[in-house]
């Protein structure tokens, strides 16, 4: 990382702009949620209705993909969607840059998703049962499974980083070349792209987690079917 991206140092840690922006996003989200959920009522106001709509939509989406896992996966998948969407949209603000335009951030998120796939898979079926699916249907498939795991994690990180970074770069270039108001359509495209990329990242994470959980379940089903026969 170049020196311009370092905002300040905290002992041996060099705090970069994406980290500071992430802290700001975290602070804003926490304050907003803490204030909005302080006095929740059964007869909701507009803000409560919006929050309930967001949470219900995320919960229902998870339930549609992975029934009975809504409450368990909601904090992780929901935070992915919310954080990435806001982090992407931060780039629209003048003078601010998206944390997700930094490869370190997207790589961190991809690694967290990678770890969560195994975490939820092992929690559901146990270590042995979960690891069995890497040698299914044959041990020969083990390297391919490992390559798949690594490549999709890298793709997850690079896809988000590339899209956000390219949008910001394109907007900057257009602003430099064309003038003050010309980048507005590009910024509108940025908003749409920010939301779409957040959705894609979260859905892919959900699909990967779902695959990890269901691979263990399908194996258990096969074992039970064999025992019955």
């Amino acid at each position: 990382m170049n020196a311009e991206a370092i905002v300040f140092t905290l002992g041996p840690l060099a705090i970069s702009r994406p980290v500071v922006t992430t802290w700001a996003v975290m602070l804003g989200l926490t304050l907003l949620c803490a204030l909005a959920t302080r006095r929740l009522r059964l007869d909701p106001g507009p803000l409560q209705t919006m929050l309930e709509g967001i949470v219900s939509t995320i919960h229902d989406t998870i339930e549609d993909t992975l029934p009975n896992y809504g409450r368990r996966l909601l904090p992780f998948i929901g935070t992915l969607w919310i954080y990435i969407a806001i982090a992407n949209l931060v780039g629209v603000l003048p003078g601010a840059t998206s944390p997700t335009g930094d490869l370190s951030t997207t790589a961190a998120l991809a690694v967290v998703v990678f770890a969560s796939v195994h975490w939820f898979g092992i929690r559901g079926e146990g270590v042995a049962a979960y690891l069995q699916h890497y040698i299914q249907p044959s041990v020969i498939m083990l390297p391919f499974h490992i390559i798949s795991e690594i490549s999709r994690t890298v793709a997850l990180a690079v896809r988000l980083f590339g899209n956000v970074m390219s949008l910001e770069t394109a907007a900057l270039l257009v602003l430099l070349v064309a003038g003050f108001l010309v980048p507005v359509p590009v910024l509108a495209l940025h908003i749409v792209e920010a939301l779409v990329q957040a959705y894609i990242f979260g859905m892919l994470a959900l699909v990967y987690i779902s695959g990890g959980i269901q691979s263990g379940q399908s194996r258990s089903t096969r074992i039970e079917a064999g025992a019955t026969q």
């Binding site: 990382m1 170049n2 991206a5 840690l13 060099a14 705090i15 970069s16 994406p18 980290v19 992430t22 802290w23 975290m26 989200l29 935070t79 954080y83 944390p99 930094d102 490869l103 370190s104 951030t105 790589a107 961190a108 998120l109 690694v111 967290v112």
Partner: peptide, 17 residues
């Protein structure tokens, strides 16, 4: 570039979030 400090801090940040 991949900055490991940022990488690690962002992991922690995300988990805290």
């Amino acid at each position: 570039q991949l900055d490991w400090t940022t990488f690690l801090l962002q992991i922690v940040n995300f988990l805290v979030l």
